[in-house]
């Protein structure tokens, strides 16, 4: 009775509801877009009323918010942080820089498409996106979680070799454990 499909469905609905309304965000301020996070969290836009709240460490976080361009040097740290997070975990790419390089499209030292290195669940475009857009992005992520479609971490595990190859292409000195979750 406990393990059959029907009761699993009910458990899933409850769990997804809780996950959706309790997103602890690790805001990784990599680029200039990070300046839009404080107004999103404080009184004007108050993201906490949607259950979005800052997390102190990767272990406690659910959402990795990558705010803007990533240099190859920070990419290494971001990968490390992402792999330390506990399942289920989500990634939000924030700003045009994470989508196609934005205004850094011809830079020698930044990565262009974040999707090649980490599985991104939701993109928020704009340079830089306003807090309304950020909230819209969180709402979209909540929709995906409720539908059970925010499975970036599963994709990452299944296609780990592909992601690793891409990552090692741009990170010349790879002094990290192969798996660190």
């Amino acid at each position: 009775m406990i393990n059959d499909k029907e009761s699993q469905k009910i458990v899933d609905i409850i769990q997804n509801f809780a996950r959706k309304h309790s997103l602890w965000v690790l805001a990784y301020g990599t680029g200039c877009g990070a300046i839009e996070i404080p107004p999103t969290m404080t009184s004007r836009y108050d993201a906490e009323r949607l259950g979005v709240r800052g997390a102190a460490t990767p272990r406690q976080a659910d959402v990795l918010l990558i705010t803007g361009y990533l240099t190859t040097k920070t990419l290494k740290r971001v990968i490390r942080v992402y792999e330390q997070m506990q399942d289920p975990k989500y990634v939000i790419g924030f700003g045009s820089c994470t989508i196609n390089g934005g205004m850094y499209f011809d830079s020698y030292n930044t990565i262009k498409a974040l999707d090649r290195y980490l599985p991104v669940d939701v993109y928020i475009n704009g340079c830089m996106p306003r807090p309304e857009a950020v909230l819209k992005g969180f709402a979209k992520l909540q929709e995906l979680i409720q539908a059970g479609k925010a499975d970036g971490s599963k994709k990452y595990k299944e296609n780990l070799e592909w992601y690793r190859a891409n990552q090692k292409e741009v990170i010349p000195v790879w002094r990290m454990p192969e798996f660190n979750w």
């Binding site: 409850i14 769990q15 309790s22 404080t42 289920p88 979750w181």
Partner: peptide, 25 residues
């Protein structure tokens, strides 16, 4: 702080979410 703030049952949701995390090292 002049915000609306989370609903009063927010911490229940947080606890359920933490309890239903799939991994914990």
């Amino acid at each position: 702080q002049n915000r609306i703030g989370p609903p009063w049952y927010q911490n229940f949701l947080d606890v359920i979410k933490l309890g239903s995390k799939k991994t914990a090292i």
